[in-house]
């Protein structure tokens, strides 16, 4: 059984039933999760910022970092596992995107990340069927490829499923 650990700006996919895909401590970052029931593939991206226009070089080097480049990159990666290139038939779930307390618009990066991601998903005709977004705590996410089950954890809280 393997663990695929994704850092900030990483994205990855697996169809090995023994694998677990995991990312630690999402603050304002958002984890986009694609589950493809047909090929039994799980994909995840750990997205830090909404828009790659602030640094094209970084986006080229680490497409998973920005919402607008992460989603196409993740879809391309998953297509190698036999998934539809435009995400047809995939189940989408989102988590993370927290904000510190009393944030104003400028500091609501978590919210802006989630919005940017949803907009891009729409352009593919995709939409999240489940989400655990916002509030003010960090989240660690892990997905078992075999069951497609998503477990979230945060210090001081019992684990929960999405």
């Amino acid at each position: 059984m393997g663990q695929i650990i994704l850092g900030v700006g990483d994205y990855g996919a697996s169809n090995s039933p023994g694998d677990v895909v995991k990312t630690f401590a999402l603050g304002s970052c958002v984890s986009v999760i694609f589950l493809d029931p047909k090929s039994r593939t799980v994909g995840m991206a750990h997205i830090a910022l909404p828009d790659s226009s602030i640094n094209k070089a970084k986006a080229a080097e680490k497409p998973g970092y920005f919402a607008d480049t992460a989603i196409p990159a993740l879809l391309t990666k998953m297509s190698k596992f036999g998934c539809d290139k435009r995400g047809k038939g995939m189940i989408v779930k989102l988590c993370g995107g927290a904000n510190v307390m009393d944030t104003n618009d400028t500091f609501q990066i978590g919210k802006r990340n989630a919005l940017a991601i949803k907009k891009i998903l729409w352009s593919y005709g995709m939409g999240a069927i489940a989400e655990d977004l916002g509030k003010n705590f960090s989240r660690t996410v892990s997905i078992s490829v075999a069951a497609g089950q998503i477990t979230l954890s945060s210090p001081g809280k019992p684990n929960w499923q999405l």
Partner: peptide, 10 residues
């Protein structure tokens, strides 16, 4: 456990 659990002073 305390991460993000503070107020931002606008």
């Amino acid at each position: 456990s305390d991460s993000m659990r503070y107020k931002l002073d606008n």
